[in-house]
Computed example of a mutant assay.
Amino acid sequence: MTGTADESEWAKPLGKKAFLPWLFALTGDTFHMALGDMPLPWLAGLGELAFVALYGTAVFTALDERWRRTLLPPAALACLVAVTFALNIGYLDHWQMCFPLLSIAIGVVLRDRGRAMATTLGTLGITSGSLWFLRPEDASTGSVLAVAWGTALGGVVAASALNLREAVRKLRDTREQLARAAVERERLRFSRDLHDLLGHTMSVIVVKAEAVRRLGPKNLEAALGQAADIEAVGRQALTEIREAVTGYREGSLTTELDNARSLLDASGIAAGIRQSGPPLPPQTGALLGWVIREGVTNVVRHSGASRCDIEVRGEPDRVHLEITDNGRGVGSSGGDGNGLKGLTERLAAAGGSLTSGPDGRRGFRLVAELPVDDEEVRAA
């Protein structure tokens, strides 16, 4: 909790008034001016008022996103430079603390322009340092070093603090975006899995229920066998849904080919299944299993075919899957369908491809190609 709270505080932008307390550095010279210890105190007062107004304008506008990219902050900064040197040249033994404050204003205004800020601070250091040769001889060496050190570090510290907070804010926003993207990907994965699982399972149950209805009056034993298959399919579907919810489901290509044969046979569709080539990595086989499940389900639901052929042809670096039927040339209930669209995205993410469409004058053809690279498929 503490770490999160600290990080949240760092992610908040600094308020516009964050740099105003540094103006108390001018308190000493203000007292001298009020006591009449410097010539023309009214002129010094006007100079101090101009300095404070320009300092506030430069800092406020540079911290306001509406004004940050306009000409107002650099214009106020340029006027602040002029007032600072006018006060220091006119009152050689007063107003030295204007230089550290000017350095802070430079860091705030030019914080995202590193080269310009470094050049400006360097020039300020050189020109302000040259003024020390004009100071009275009794000027304190300690105060000279303190002012010089403050001038050198003021702008760097101010720019670093602002840039650090900006970086923390961007990192937090990026992390939140990644978290939202991960949630969206998981939702998409779950919706795809649920669509594929329930679509296939309900098709099997409907087909076998129709078989029970047809066989019941004629062959009670065969009807009971189909009913037992419905029970087995239902239990298997429950297991697969639980696995899909937890994200650990990995289908088997051999299992899906067996399930495809069973579903086609129960639907009265002749099945021709051929598999060749070397054994496939588990993840590659699992992804092809999803394609077979969706393709065969669409054949049973929409094609009106009497025959369906499934060919899996493995090569050293790629595997080719083709599902064809002799039906009406319709692969789904609506063009590509949500299932085929989801599978196309899955295979594309794994470096593969999925194409589908009518096969000549009659029938429908579904072709999937996938690299035989288990790491790439697992990452996708």
Rank of each mutant, 00 (worst) to 15 (best):
Gly339Arg: 10
Lys208Phe: 04
Trp42Arg: 14
Phe19Ile: 02
Thr84His: 08
Gly154Ile: 05
Gly351Asp: 00
Thr70Asp: 06
Thr344Leu: 04
Lys170Leu: 15
Leu35Val: 10
Asn326Arg: 09
Arg249Val: 10
Ala232Met: 14
Leu49Glu: 01
Ala350Tyr: 10
Cys308Ala: 13
Gln275Asp: 15
Gly36Arg: 03
Leu23Asn: 03
Phe51His: 03
Leu354Asn: 02
Asp138Val: 13
Pro73Phe: 04
Phe60Thr: 13
Ala5Cys: 11
Leu153Tyr: 15
Glu186Arg: 13
Ala244Pro: 06
Leu164Gly: 14
Pro282Asp: 10
Ser356Cys: 09
Ser130Tyr: 15
Arg361Thr: 15
Leu253Gln: 03
Leu263Tyr: 05
Ser332Asn: 04
Arg235Met: 12
Gly107Asp: 01
Ile323Asp: 02
Leu71Tyr: 01
Ala105Pro: 03
Glu166Ser: 13
Ala286Gly: 09
Glu184Phe: 08
Ala11Gln: 05
Asp64Ser: 08
Gly285Met: 00
Leu263Arg: 01
Ala148Gly: 13
Leu347His: 00
Glu375Met: 02
Pro41Glu: 11
Glu184Asn: 06
Trp95Ile: 04
Ala86Lys: 06
Gly90Lys: 01
Ser356Asn: 10
Ala161Pro: 07
Pro39Arg: 04
Ala34Cys: 11
Gly352Lys: 03
Leu87Tyr: 03
Lys208Trp: 07
Asn338Ser: 12
Leu264Ala: 04
Pro41Lys: 05
Phe51Trp: 05
Gly289Met: 03
Ala75Tyr: 00
Trp290Phe: 06
Thr344Lys: 06
Ile292Phe: 05
Gly335Arg: 10
Thr297Glu: 12
Ser160Pro: 02
Val296Gln: 02
Phe85Ser: 00
Pro41Cys: 11
Ala244His: 09
Gly114Leu: 13
Trp149Asn: 14
Phe133Pro: 08
Ala148Val: 12
Glu315Phe: 05
Phe99Ser: 05
Thr119Glu: 12
Pro279Gly: 05
Leu280Pro: 02
Pro278Ser: 03
Glu322Ile: 14
Ala11Thr: 04
Gln96Gly: 07
